[in-house]
């Protein structure tokens, strides 16, 4: 990757910039073949998106005039390495009445920030913690 952000002209990356696309294990798109799957050289792990790919797509969204979409890709990039059960636990916690107090959400934010470096998502949850308090969402729902 050059330092310059990707633009609309680079899109779709798989067609126009295959040089910048690779899996977490460093495989290129051309390595992901049926033969590769059949000989176990390609696993489900190789068919996952990477944080880098999401940031690249964020650059393209920004260039296309879609800053909010880019922001979502940025948050997604931070969550790529967060395990599924953690994701589902935090999602559950964000639902109304699940967290009994602001502290529970702040703890989740801290976990994301400290364990996974998910700074943006952590700030996002901290923001929710404030709003939930103001809107009385820490009430237990039956």
């Amino acid at each position: 990757m050059t330092g310059k952000p990707l633009t609309v002209a680079d899109y779709p990356l798989a067609e126009n910039r295959p040089d910048v696309v690779e899996t977490k294990a460093g495989k290129k798109l051309d390595d992901i073949t049926l033969d590769g799957v059949l000989s176990d050289r390609v696993s489900l792990e190789d068919l996952r998106i990477t944080d880098r790919a999401l940031r690249q797509q964020a650059e393209i969204s920004t260039a296309a005039g879609r800053p909010t979409l880019a922001a979502n890709f940025e948050r997604g990039a931070e969550l790529v390495d967060v395990p599924q059960d953690v994701i589902m636990r935090i999602y559950e916690l964000l639902r109304p009445g699940r967290a009994g107090s602001r502290q529970e959400l702040l703890a989740a934010a801290r976990e994301l920030r400290e364990t996974y470096g998910a700074e943006g998502v952590a700030a996002f949850i901290e923001e929710a913690a404030d709003v939930y308090e103001r809107r009385s969402l820490y009430k237990k729902r039956f």
Partner: peptide
């Protein structure tokens, strides 16, 4: 807001889910 809560979500929980989907490609 009441429909949202009755739907068992908030804008933040849904936005988190949106990011989670992105993170799974």
């Amino acid at each position: 807001e009441k429909s949202f809560i009755d739907g068992d979500d908030t804008p933040w929980s849904k936005a988190f889910l949106a990011a989670a989907y992105a993170s799974r490609g």
